[in-house]
Write a protein that binds this DNA or RNA. Structure first.
Length: 794
DNA sequence: CGATACGATCTTTTT
DNA sequence: GATCGTATCG
């Protein structure tokens, strides 16, 4: 029952594990074996400060490590693993280490391997909540009514399923958006609520009281489809553990030490899962930072970390507050912003006394810059990067951190134009592209024919003459019969219910799938199978005939898919990887590139130079976040700001603009309230903007650095004016922002009355006022450096 | 049944 | 601006 074979005489193996393994208390274990080797002087302790050391060495009982940004959290976790293994408290395979993201899991594994050497190979149970619970579920899936080939649905499949349910329940999909239902169900699962546990008043809000019913049907459909969704992975685990004490006990004896990263991001289901597993050894170590909790929208409960000592009685709490990453200016800026949040555990960030970054007397202050629009912003940031590189810096020391992924495009465009190498992290995901999902659906269908969602996806892709009406007929049969579309279709084809092109198309489709399945069973390698499917189904043909510019890219993506499959031994292994990881094969990419990523994606990162663009009301404290969650949402946004700033080692550039294109419409926007929260003495502010006073566009910034006269002076008149205008009483309605329109005529067609200005960068812009409207003309290519800056109204 | 056109809606953030 | 859904026609 233990994976490791008894090679090192680990005392645990002396005990009859099967009799009552979880009775073995920590102290009994300690008493029953020779004292562990002295830890002092162990290499993994080198360079740790006293608090870090304490967090590593405190291995008896529960422990919460409150680790501020840059205080060496991952280092402590990996050192703790090394300590546990080196002192023979447990084999690597007897430790459970859970992270939140795949990226974090990868990093943790790499760093642990570096400390542990070969022993690190045994870290079987290091992974994300989802990947570990999926492994556990695979072993016991029959207990919750799933077959071992079950598929894991992604968000898209969930929504499509919800759509069918909404329709079946005769609800208007406009009033009751399937997406919303999917979100509700997800939220319940995050709280580990099965259909009969959902608070009635909450569920009744959906679909005229049909909320719970929809949830029930959804779960029933999942069972028929032999599938589960992300939330189910954990919920099924919990069900299995609660209903089968023997199985739980088995895991108790497997997991002697539990380590949890980013504990502040756990949701209720994850918390329950952990608590069940930790009942055995009672040795759980959670590391987290309440100030970096940024997944509330996904069900994370900051409460989990605030309540830790009640959940795990006798828990010890260690605070890591010495920061070894950033300059004092950066720390001060981050601390000042986060100090506006209520309900924190309270934790200061001190400059680590031996930190090189902090002791630099010439450290640059945080720079705040106001610009005309997004284009000027990306231009400036690109120029900064170029000059950083000219001075001997590298591109990969810079990152642009945005709030939402749509903000990335402006930077990409600019970087392409200037030839700055860059890499977008977590952009549009490879495995979410239509062509990839289509190919995957074929593979899923070959492997598990009951996967109706896959069936529906590809039955008419490429076109086989099977339209909505044929599909609807098949579905009604399947629903009546309770079996899957794939099994029912041949029977329906016996009748004359479906005729003509649809009948012929379906016959071919079914035959092909069956043939492919035979090939797979006959030992055809899965990569060749994939090529065969794409060829014979006509999918490649369809794309080759497609004259649209994206078609070639799609074909390339499919080639990449086949290549990625080659890295896995079996089709099942590949499918599971994709379902869980959904990461584009993160191939060669460690080159010298600027990283563009979202603030959420930036957790765990650290870089010398960090750009934080888009600090505008409604964009950075995101409007939706405030609308949906009010003060809680605002505080979460503030934590995002904290995460962003603390990524920087040496330099942090914050910027905002006066005008931004949102939904393709120009809007004038206000600086983020977070800018007001920055500590003056640690900030340099440069504003190229001031308020215009143009009727109908009062909020627009018009003006230039030259107009303002002074630069790098926080208290410049322009800045003051800006601050006065930017601060509005909370709760006040957003201002009317109409009155700004843009046209894209070339530089030769400036209307009369336009005034052309060149800015100090040699770029230019034309602005002119026309009655009550401020119209901005701009050069779309960016290549002609003709236009620009800012004109006050005549 | 499929191709096209028009309109509505939308954009956080991720396993 | 882009995508998605519905309506309409061939």
């Amino acid at each position: 029952m233990l994976e490791d074979g008894n090679t090192s005489g680990h005392p645990c193996y002396m005990f009859p594990m099967s009799s009552n393994p979880n009775r073995l208390s920590v102290s009994q274990m300690a008493a029953a074996r020779p004292p562990p080797p002295a830890a002092e002087g162990a290499p993994y302790l080198n360079g740790l400060n006293p608090e870090q050391r304490e967090a590593v060495l405190h291995t008896e009982g529960s422990l919460l490590v409150l680790a501020g940004a840059g205080t060496g959290k991952t280092r402590v976790l990996t050192a703790r693993l090394a300590h546990i293994v080196a002192t023979r408290r447990a084999y690597p395979s007897q430790t459970l280490t859970v992270t939140f993201t795949n990226k974090a899991a990868r990093e943790m594994r790499e760093r642990a391997m570096a400390l542990l050497g070969e022993a690190g190979e045994g870290l079987r149970w290091l992974g994300t909540f989802h990947s570990i619970s999926a492994q556990i579920l695979r072993k016991h899936c029959e207990l919750v009514g799933l077959k071992s080939t079950f598929t894991i649905l992604d968000t898209d499949d969930q929504v499509r399923l919800c759509k069918q349910i909404v329709q079946a329940e005769n609800l208007d999909p406009k009033r009751w958006a399937p997406r919303y239902l999917a979100g509700l169900i997800d939220g319940w699962k995050n709280r580990a609520l099965l259909p009969d546990k959902v608070p009635v008043e909450e569920a009744e809000l959906f679909g005229n009281g049909k909320g719970i019913e929809c949830y029930r049907i959804y779960q029933a459909r999942l069972k028929v489809l032999n599938a589960c969704d992300f939330g189910d992975l954990l919920v099924h685990n919990i069900t299995i553990f609660q209903d089968n004490p023997d199985i739980l006990q088995d895991y108790h004896s497997k997991f002697r030490y539990i380590l949890v990263d980013e504990y502040q991001d756990t949701n209720v289901a994850q918390y329950l899962w952990l608590r069940l597993l930790a009942q055995g050894s009672r040795n759980i170590c959670c590391v987290g930072d309440d100030d970096q909790s940024i997944y509330g929208w996904r069900g994370a409960e900051v409460d989990n970390i605030l309540r830790f000592d009640k959940d795990f009685p006798g828990a010890k709490v260690v605070r890591l507050e010495r920061n070894y990453r950033s300059t004092q200016h950066i720390l001060a800026a981050a601390s000042a912003i986060i100090a506006n949040n209520k309900g924190r555990l309270g934790k200061a960030l001190y400059v680590g006394d031996d930190s090189a970054a902090a002791s630099d007397p010439d450290a640059a202050k945080v720079k705040v810059r106001g610009l005309w629009d997004g284009e000027a912003e990306s231009r400036l940031i690109a120029d900064d990067i170029e000059s950083w590189v000219r001075k001997g810096g590298r591109h990969d020391q810079c990152a642009v951190l945005v709030r939402a992924s749509w903000q990335m495009r402006a930077f990409e465009e600019r970087f392409i134009l200037l030839g700055i190498p860059y890499r977008v992290i977590g952009g549009p995901r490879f495995f979410e592209r239509a062509e990839i999902r289509d190919a995957m659906a074929y593979l899923r269908l070959v492997r598990s024919p009951d996967d109706d969602l896959a069936f529906e996806r590809v039955v008419n892709e490429p076109k086989r003459g099977v339209g909505d009406s044929s599909l609807a007929k098949l579905q009604s049969y399947a629903r009546a019969d309770g079996r899957s579309l794939f099994t029912l279709t041949p029977m329906v084809l016996q009748t004359d219910e479906i005729k003509g092109a649809a009948k012929r198309g379906l016959t071919v489709f079914i035959d092909q799938i069956n043939m492919w399945r035979d090939k797979l069973a006959g030992g055809l390698p899965h990569t060749e199978l994939a090529e065969m499917i794409l060829e014979e189904s006509g999918y490649t043909d369809m794309l080759q005939k497609d004259r649209s510019p994206q078609a070639q890219g799609r074909l390339d993506n499919l080639k990449e898919l086949v290549r990625a499959m080659g890295e896995f031994d079996t089709l099942a292994g590949f499918l599971e990887h994709v379902e869980l990881v959904m990461d584009a094969a993160s191939g060669a990419g460690s080159d010298d590139q600027v990283q563009i990523l979202t603030l959420h994606g930036a957790k765990g990162l650290e870089l010398p130079v960090v750009f934080l663009p888009g600090w505008e009301e409604e964009v950075f404290p995101s409007r939706r976040s405030l609308d949906e969650s009010g003060l809680r949402g605002l505080e979460e946004e503030r934590r995002l700001a904290y995460v962003g700033i603390t990524r920087a080692r040496a330099q942090c550039f914050i910027s905002f603009v006066a005008n931004r294109q949102i939904y393709g419409r120009w809007q004038s926007v206000l600086p983020s309230r977070f800018i007001d929260e920055l500590p003056h003495e640690h900030v340099d502010a440069v504003s190229e903007t001031g308020y215009s006073g143009i009727p109908g566009a009062e909020n627009a910034f018009v003006g230039s650095v030259e107009d303002l006269g002074e630069r790098s002076n926080y208290e410049s008149p322009g800045w003051k004016r800006l601050k006065e205008n930017a601060t509005r009483p909370s709760g006040a309605p957003p201002r009317e922002t109409s009155g700004l329109t843009a046209t894209a005529s070339g530089p030769d067609t400036f209307p009369p009355g336009a005034r052309v200005f060149h800015d100090k960068f040699g770029y230019g812009r034309v602005a002119f006022s026309e009655g009550n409207k401020l119209t901005v003309d701009f050069d779309k290519t960016g290549r002609k450096k003709v236009i620009a800056t800012f004109v006050t109204a005549a």
